[in-house]
Design a binder for these strands. Structure first.
Lengths: 197, 197, 197, 197
DNA sequence: GTCTAAACGAGACGGTACGTCGTGTCTTCGG
DNA sequence: CCGAAGACACGACGTACCGTCTCGTTTAGAC
């Protein structure tokens, strides 16, 4: 009656933000000490919340985990358009490598990728909300490079971006080699000769 | 007088090879029309075999799937040492791309990678029996190139190999771009300038 | 305003009494046409209930059966203290014989005794909830008889009660002789001379 | 052609009596430390014999146990016909009480009665080979008593025998009271007045 | 001395039931 | 309307025995 805003006049008890945060935190903690996805039961128990509440707001533990991941690591995408293209791209790859190696994001992504490979909905969400924003930011840098002449015309930006980022994800997934400190720099060095004149 | 061979004088009823094959086939079929790993129950039902028989020989559906994968696609690794290094590597990458795109191996690997990300034993098996043989075959080619002078000294073969193969796996996993026909050729073209003088 | 009773303010969905009854009935029916204890699977199937529901409320099929038995045959214990001791005891034994011969209680008890002989928990439950109440009711009658002089002092009530009831159970278990109509009367007639003056 | 005995000219390897004994012993031992019937697997393992051998000669663990029981306790039935009837019967009941209380026979019988209550074949075997011989020996004593006038005419021997033996089995099965040393004597004392003039 | 049929050992196999865990839904009450 | 508590159906788990089977090996007696 009195809600003057454009919001659709919410009635009844409002959703508790504390519980939301508790659930996201609990899910992340459980995911980190257990190689599989946490169960809804476990998250509810750890967060001190009932199972029903989780089911009401998220379709699966993977969705909870993804929301938590994006909440904590939404940054690490945007970079200054004034930087030289190679510097900007190296910095992006390096930021990713650091994130995967030094923060919980790496482990969380592993769990989420596992869920993605078995569930289409999670796959779509993860692709749209995690990979694509980063891919397109990088592609935009390359297109800028082509426009300014710093990158050779005819270069396929999408392919180059895959070449730059894939090794980091590859090592995260397979674990056959470490995510070295200078991985970003070395990968860029291997690709650059081919895309500059 | 009897069993003269080196075989350790098998006692008891011998294992049925028909059933083994039926199980491998059933697992692969089920994996291909369902995005998640098949259950032991389902495999047993489809293969016309009892659950216990499966548990006796494999620790998990993932292990069944892996054995089936290796059985069917054990080739695709070895290449002629007389070929030029670039030709040989391009052929390897191309064989992988073709395998992932045109055969069930792609879908099977997706399921197995999902299992790997959640289960350490599967991860080890998959790494040791799938990725490492292919990685090392490629690394050997590069080392040959370094030895013959075709590849610049100081090149890190392991890193280069990751650069060559990672894009294919990356696209298989994320599905954000297709496994193009000329992917192998283009990837090699992007890396080659940096490792030749 | 609401729940004024001493009940501890029950929360959550209340237990379904229909299902409880369906389970008890299904277990009894299955026990009666099969010489062994029914399996949890079978009870669940017959009752149209899930296995987990049964496991939640009972530790074993024997416990289900016992609860059903007590539900249906809780009576048959109490008798009028004003009756002469011999009349009262004969009536008790006769009620037992009739129960074992003419109602499902006989068959159910056979199954439960089988379970008792193999499982201590069932044995305790069956002893406490079936035999002991009946034994002590009979013992009380005999003690009354001793007090009033109708039964000879020095008589061991526990032993006499065993003598009175054991033949019925003996024939139920071994099946070597029928539970005759006049078994109770004849047994009492055989014991009475020894405990009266 | 020359086998002169009635035996049907046995050919091939004869059955091993050592193994038979080892199986009987193993079954008895396992039955005594475990409240349920031993499994065929367990017996085979303990006896150092293959499962197949057991299945070849016995239909079930209960049959093994019964054969072992009869082997060890075949005596305890026959008594001197010259003894007074009451003395002879008291001795029989006392022998049973002692057997059930002081030897493994008690525990073995408990297991076998459990099996009997669930399996008709076992029930028949146990009744025919254990209970009936003992019952009839006792009945014969009573009939002798009736013939000689020591027992009152019109007495039902079968019922009296049940009265005498049932309490011992009753206490073995239910465990609600101990198998006292003087149980036999007291039971006979309670029955005797009614069957003598 | 062979020959041979049965006993025996080893182990694969199809079943059935077990008891547990996690899922997702539903029901009831309280804030 | 949010949330807690908990009942419930369902499906898969991995294990334990069951009883049957198919091999190969052993062995006492018949020839």
């Amino acid at each position: 009656m009195n809600s003057r805003s454009g919001a659709p006049a919410r009635r009844g008890r409002p959703r508790s933000p504390e519980r939301r945060r508790a659930i996201l935190a609990a899910a992340a903690e459980l995911a980190l000490d257990g190689s599989a996805l946490p169960t809804v039961d476990a998250i509810a128990g750890r967060a001190g919340v009932s199972r029903t509440t989780i089911y009401k707001w998220w379709p699966s533990p993977a969705a909870v985990l993804l929301e938590g991941l994006l909440d904590r690591f939404h940054a690490s995408i945007e970079f200054d358009d004034d930087l030289p293209v190679r510097t900007a791209l190296t910095a992006q790859v390096d930021a990713l490598v650091g994130l995967l190696r030094d923060t919980p994001a790496g482990a969380l992504l592993r769990r989420l990728m596992a869920a993605s490979l078995a569930d289409a909905a999670t796959a779509t969400a993860l692709l749209d909300q995690w990979l694509e924003p980063r891919r397109h930011a990088a592609i935009r840098h390359l297109e800028r490079g082509i426009a300014t002449g710093a990158v050779r015309p005819g270069t396929d930006p999408a392919l180059v971006v895959d070449l730059l980022f894939a090794p980091a994800y590859h090592r995260l997934v397979w674990g056959h080699a470490p995510l070295d400190d200078d991985l970003a720099e070395q990968v860029c060095a291997l690709v650059w000769p081919a895309i500059t004149t």
